[in-house]
Design a protein around this nucleic acid. Structure first.
Length: 581
RNA sequence: GCCUUUGUAGUUCAAUGGAUAGAACAGAGCUCUUCUAAGGCUUUGAUGUAGGUUCGAUUCCUACCAGAGGCACCA
């Protein structure tokens, strides 16, 4: 039984002994006070009961404490009444010693639970579009999705990582138009686009330029717009040899590039879905349900009248007969389920799609109510520069690779005096760059915009990924020294005072559970920063590895426990923990 | 215009309706003959406005102000 349950039972039985019905309150509220001087757990039960009992909360608290003291378990050292009626619990030395033992024993399993056991969850995130850049928005969706995946895995769920990619649609036509025009203008450039069919002689940055070129002309040039729409139809019909060829190469160039990025970011997808696979089925679903009255015809298009549900109306099949992404997404829900029957389906996107997903989920509810029930849309904020929104439509994008490259340069600059082999330096600098970026995304509540300032957001000091990684490397370095001096960890403390470190360490599993319940990775990030800060103070206070100090084995045990939890926590954020940096 | 969402130190972020609103950066001042100073210690500084609910509100409700996103054939 975990400590929270023990405390809860203790309160309930004490209330019963006092002839108070504990079930008049919905649940016993137990929280960690902000300051350790207020104990390890605190309950406001007396304050809540005060009204219904018409009694002073402090008096109620006193009575409860008297009852609790009659049956104080080993885990609790003392119980006190404080403030306006809080009951504060102070945990005992043996509780902390046992927890440290448990951490050292369970290692990478510490923090995991079985809450979502037997729950199969498919989680869709990143979703870059072939023929377009992998921009920093994708980086953000990936960071959030990967972290949520790992968190719910730690809560026991089986996770299927899915990526849905738009390999058909107007953006493809814009790119193909751009490619054709650029080759027309400069035939020599053809090789840069198409290369030899097998190698990587193809220049993937050219494809980004072609998209930007097509996109700009689509907006400004009526003739180009018409040509692009014609190409769009050909992409679907596949009856134009030249279009087919450009399409085939462009798609592969994009997908290969994406795979390289996923590898750097630490994501391995289990399933890929493509719009080219959802189009026909999506259209079929819409047409079937047009007859059933879910959709209606308007101005030549097939629409879903979201206004009837307080939402907005959207087009599912265009007046030209093309399926919009609304219809494709609708089909996707069923295709996903057919391929991997899930208990829960999570889709992660930027919050600019929040309203859209409400409409989509309403339509889904009318067609596949069981699937709609299982589906959840999670949105994150936008990564924006002080100068404004980042858009790939205008062609002015910051690509994921560019950003990671810039960060890596900063890291390498910082590492230039480190004694480390070139290969190791390269690996470690990759870990740190990705860690810095991911942390800056995950440290705040999912859903709020991130104002992205190169210098500030990616600082390597203070509240940052590298701070956590540095703390880890430091702990590992200490443990290495302990090993060299043959000092073994011992969880039984001799006569040291408890430090704040023990009081933070045991809280990790609760944090994992909460982050999973709320789908909020930032709880992990906040906890890890507090934990690391506590460890760093502990480190600064005196030597840990010291043969002349009888407490040294206990300090080594705490250091090891810290390193285990920090590594597990970083893993939940999708951040690697370097042994050295 | 309608809908959604966000307003917390100079800046970027925390705070299941609870105790003295936490950090980090920036500013001021300390700290490496000692296990990693990407560290530690000290210090200045904040809940958009006006009401309401509550024993208690940054948190819930209403209005207003300000920012962001969305609102018919792009994803």
């Amino acid at each position: 039984m975990n400590i929270k349950d023990i405390l809860e039972n203790l309160i309930i039985t004490s209330l019963l002994d006092l002839q108070i019905d504990p079930f008049v309150v919905p649940n016993i509220n137990l929280e960690h006070p902000e300051e350790f001087s207020h104990g390890d757990f605190s309950s406001n039960i007396a304050m809540i009961l005060s009204k219904s009992l018409s009694k002073n909360p402090r008096e109620i608290a006193q009575n409860i404490v008297i009852e609790i003291n009659k049956k104080l378990p080993d885990e609790i050292q003392k119980v006190e009444v404080a403030g306006s009626g809080f009951i504060n619990f102070y945990l005992s030395d043996s509780f902390f010693e046992n927890k440290t033992k448990q951490i050292l024993l369970e290692k990478e399993y510490f923090g995991k639970n079985k809450k979502l056991d037997n729950q199969k969850t498919i989680i869709e995130y990143t979703d870059p579009n072939p023929f377009k850049e992998f921009h920093i928005g994708h980086l953000m969706t990936n960071a959030v999705g990967e972290s949520i995946s790992r968190i719910i895995e730690s809560n026991g769920a089986e996770v299927i990582r899915a990526c849905y990619q738009g390999d058909v649609g107007l953006h493809v036509a814009k790119t193909i138009w751009g490619v054709k025009k650029m080759i027309e203008e400069d035939p020599a450039i053809k090789k840069g686009f198409l290369g030899n069919m097998f190698g990587f002689g193809k220049d993937d940055t050219l494809w980004g330029k072609a998209y930007a070129y097509g996109a700009a002309n689509y907006e400004e040039n009526e003739i180009a717009k018409k040509e692009i729409m014609e190409i769009n139809i050909k992409v679907y019909s596949k009856d134009d040899t030249e279009v087919n060829k450009i399409y085939k190469v462009g798609r592969k160039v994009s997908l290969d590039k994406f795979e390289k990025i996923y590898k750097v970011l630490g994501t391995k997808f289990n399933e890929y879905f493509f719009e080219s696979q959802t189009t026909d089925f999506g259209k079929k679903v819409v047409e079937e349900n047009l007859e059933k009255g879910v959709f209606e015809k308007s101005e030549g298009a097939v629409i879903f009248r979201g206004e009837n549900y307080g939402l907005h109306t959207r087009v599912f099949i265009s007046s030209e007969g093309l399926t919009t992404y609304e219809a494709k997404d609708l089909g996707l829900a069923k295709i996903k389920y057919d391929r991997c029957p899930y208990d829960k389906s999570i889709i992660i996107t930027a919050n600019e799609q929040s309203e859209y997903f409400k409409v989509l989920l309403k339509a889904l509810e009318l067609i596949y109510p069981d699937l709609a029930e299982k589906t959840k849309h999670i949105s994150h904020g936008m990564l924006r520069l002080p100068s404004g929104k980042m858009s790939s439509r205008t062609g002015k994008v910051i690509t994921g690779e560019f950003l990671l490259g810039e960060i890596k340069n900063l890291v390498l600059e910082k590492m230039k005096d480190r004694e480390m082999g070139e290969k190791e330096k390269d690996e470690v600098s990759n870990m740190i760059s990705v860690g810095a970026l991911k942390y800056s995304i995950l440290k705040q509540t999912t859903g709020k915009d991130i104002i992205f300032d190169f210098d500030k957001s990616l600082s390597f000091e203070g509240d940052s990924g590298p701070y956590l990684q540095y703390s880890y490397a430091r702990a590992k370095s200490i443990l290495k020294k302990a090993k060299e001096e043959n000092l073994k960890a011992d969880c039984n403390k001799i006569k040291t005072e408890l430090t704040e470190l023990e009081k933070k360490l045991y809280q990790f599993p609760e944090i994992v559970e909460r982050a999973g319940d709320e789908y909020l990775p930032h709880h992990i990030a906040t906890y890890l920063i507090e934990l690391s800060s506590t460890f760093n103070s502990f480190y600064a206070k005196g030597k840990i590895v010291d043969k002349d100090d009888a407490n040294s084995p206990y300090k080594v045990a705490l250091t090891e426990a810290f390193s285990i939890i920090l590594k597990n926590g970083l893993n939940l954020l999708g951040i690697s923990a370097p042994e050295k940096m």
